[in-house]
Design a binder for these strands. Structure first.
Lengths: 199, 199
DNA sequence: ACCTGAACACCGTTCAAGT
DNA sequence: ACCTGAACACCGTTCAAGT
C-alpha cells in the first residue's frame, strides 16, 4: 500500500498526501503529526522541518484543497458548453462532489482558521474562476455591485448546499434537486439580469 | 467572574456553560475536558459522570446550540410583522448574528459529527420553525416538493452566508447586502410561488 | 448516583545533537 | 538544510475506590 524510501527531499509533499488520506478516513480529529511521521517513516520531530506546528499543516492542507477544488471547477467548466444554466450546474456539482469525497477537508477549507497567506491566495483563485463562470463581463462594466453580490450569493449557496450534504443533513439525490432549484432561481433572478447584461 | 460552590447537582449544566465561554475564546481546539473540570472546580474524572467522552460533550454543545438558535429565530419572527420579506430578513439576521457571536459553536452544529439523537431533534425543531416562517401551508397542500426544496434552499443559503461571515471571508456589512439580495431573489422566484400558493 | 485520584497511552512542541 | 531522539507538559480515557 505504501512505500518506504521517502524523506529525501519530498517529505513535505509526502506528509500532505498522507494527510489527505487520513483526513478522509478519520477526519481532522484523527490527524496527528506523530502519526503522519510514523506513516511516512520518519521520526516524530521531522515534520517540524516543514510545518512549524499542527495548524501550519492544516493551513497547507486547506490551501492545496482550494487548489484541487479550483482544478475541479475549471475542468467542469471546460466540459460544459456555453449555456449559462449548464455551466452553473456543472460548477455546483463540482462543489458538491468535492464536499462529499473530502468532507473533512472541505470543512477545513471553509473555517475561520485559514488566515494563512497561501490559503487566502488559493481561495481567491477559486473565486476568480467562479467569476469567470458567469461569462464575459458586460462591455460597459455593468452593475458592478450586482455582479459582486450575485457572485457571493452563488458561492454562499453552493457552500450551503455542500455543507448540508457534508453534514449528512440531506441526501445526495436531494442535493441534485437543490442544485437545479438554486441555479434556476438564480438565473431567473433580477439580480442576475443586472449582473450580466450591459446597463 | 465565576463562582466556586458548584458540583452539587448541576455539574453538567455548569460544564456546558463554561464550555460555551471557552468555545468563544479559544475555539473547539481549545476545549478540553480536563480544563473544563478545572474551571468548574472538580476533579478531571468528574465530567465522565455526565459525558462518556469528549465527543459527547461536543454533541451536547451542538444540541444546546440548536436550541439557542431556534429561540433566537423564534424571537426574530415574533418581533417582525406579517410581511414575508421582513420575516425572511429577520430570520436571516438571527442566523448570521448567531454565526458571528458563536462562530465555533456554529461550526460544531453544522458538522458531520452531530449524529447524536438529541442533536438531531434540536436541529429538526429549528427546521420546523423555519417551515413556520414561510407562512401558513396552502389549504390544498400546495406543491409539497417545491415547498421542501424552497425550505432547504433557504436553509442552505442562510447557512452559506453564515459560513462566509464566520470564516471572515466577507464583512458583516456585506452580509446585510447579501441577505437582502438572497431574500429578494428567493421571494421573487417561481419556486416560492409554487411553494406558498395554492396549486 | 456522583466524584476522586492514580495510571496508561498518546500527543504537540522544544531543543541539542547529528549528517 | 534536514532529520533524530530525549524531554516536558498536556490530554483523553479507564478504573478501583470513596461518599
Amino acid at each position: 500500500m505504501s512505500d518506504r524510501p521517502f524523506h529525501h527531499g519530498n517529505l513535505r509533499a509526502a506528509l500532505l498526501d498522507e494527510a489527505v488520506l487520513v483526513l478522509r478516513e478519520s477526519g481532522v480529529d484523527g490527524l496527528s503529526l506523530r502519526d503522519l511521521a510514523r506513516r511516512t517513516g520518519v521520526s516524530h520531530g521531522a515534520p517540524r522541518s516543514h510545518f512549524v506546528d499542527r495548524q501550519a499543516l492544516l493551513d497547507a492542507l486547506a490551501s492545496t484543497g482550494f487548489d484541487r477544488l479550483t482544478t475541479a471547477v475549471r475542468r467542469a467548466l471546460a466540459g460544459s458548453g456555453p449555456d449559462l444554466a449548464a455551466r452553473f450546474r456543472a460548477v455546483a456539482h463540482a462543489y458538491v462532489d468535492f464536499a462529499i469525497d473530502d468532507a473533512a477537508l472541505m470543512e477545513l477549507m471553509f473555517q475561520a482558521k485559514g488566515s494563512n497567506g497561501a490559503t487566502r491566495e488559493s481561495a481567491a483563485t477559486l473565486f476568480t474562476v467562479l467569476d469567470g463562470a458567469m461569462g464575459p463581463r458586460p462591455t460597459d462594466g455593468g452593475d458592478e455591485e450586482a455582479r459582486t453580490a450575485f457572485k457571493m450569493l452563488f458561492a454562499a449557496t453552493m457552500q450551503g448546499i455542500a455543507a448540508l450534504v457534508a453534514s449528512r443533513r440531506i441526501e445526495r439525490r436531494d442535493a441534485d434537486g437543490l442544485i437545479q432549484a438554486a441555479t434556476g432561481m438564480m438565473l431567473a433572478s433580477d439580480l442576475r439580469a443586472r449582473a450580466t447584461t450591459a446597463g
